Simulated assay, not measured.
Amino acid sequence: MVHKTTFGTAVEVAHHRPRLSPIGSPVRHFRLQPELTVKGGGASDVAVVQGFKTTYAFVADARGEVVDWLALATAGTCVAVLAALGYSQETSRDVQGPAA
């Protein structure tokens, strides 16, 4: 799913760092506003995982854990994968989420 325009913001839940994916790369947790429409409902959280050459976005729970390993989008960077979903990364604040 790729959007040509940005319709929302993604704010990192930075206190969920550091977290590693099964391949050992860092996982960043973002809270989306408004939520993203996905198959089976909506997603207000995504986990962004940097792979070896590609960055992936996955549906996550409120703690930033991946709940579906089917990639929502792929791109070269974190900012680009969020943009592919239609979100701009907001870096001015950290949102609070459940304790990791």
Rank of each mutant, 00 (worst) to 15 (best):
G97N: 08
T91L: 15
A43I: 03
V27E: 04
H29N: 08
S88H: 06
H3R: 10
A80R: 07
H3E: 12
H15C: 12
R19C: 07
A57I: 05
A84D: 06
G24P: 04
L85Q: 01
A57Q: 01
A62N: 07
K4M: 13
R19I: 02
L82F: 05
A83H: 11
T54A: 08
T55Y: 01
G51T: 09
G40D: 08
R17V: 08
A10E: 02
A75K: 03
T37W: 03
R28T: 12
A83E: 09
H15P: 04
Q50K: 13
T6C: 11
A83P: 00
G41W: 07
T77A: 10
R19M: 13
V79N: 07
H3V: 08
F30I: 07
R93V: 15
V27W: 00
A83Q: 09
A80Q: 11
Y87V: 04
R28L: 14
W69E: 08
T9W: 04
H29Y: 11
A62Q: 08
V13M: 09
S88I: 06
P26T: 14
A84W: 00
T55D: 03
R31M: 07
A57C: 07
S21A: 14
P34I: 12
A73R: 06
P26H: 14
K4C: 04
T9A: 14
L70I: 13
P98C: 07
V13A: 14
T5N: 08
A99Q: 15
H3Y: 08
Q89N: 09
V95N: 05
D68H: 13
E65D: 13
T74P: 00
W69A: 10
A100W: 13
T5Y: 05
V59E: 10
V13E: 02
Y87I: 04
V13D: 02
R31E: 09
T91P: 00
G86A: 10
S44M: 09
F7R: 12
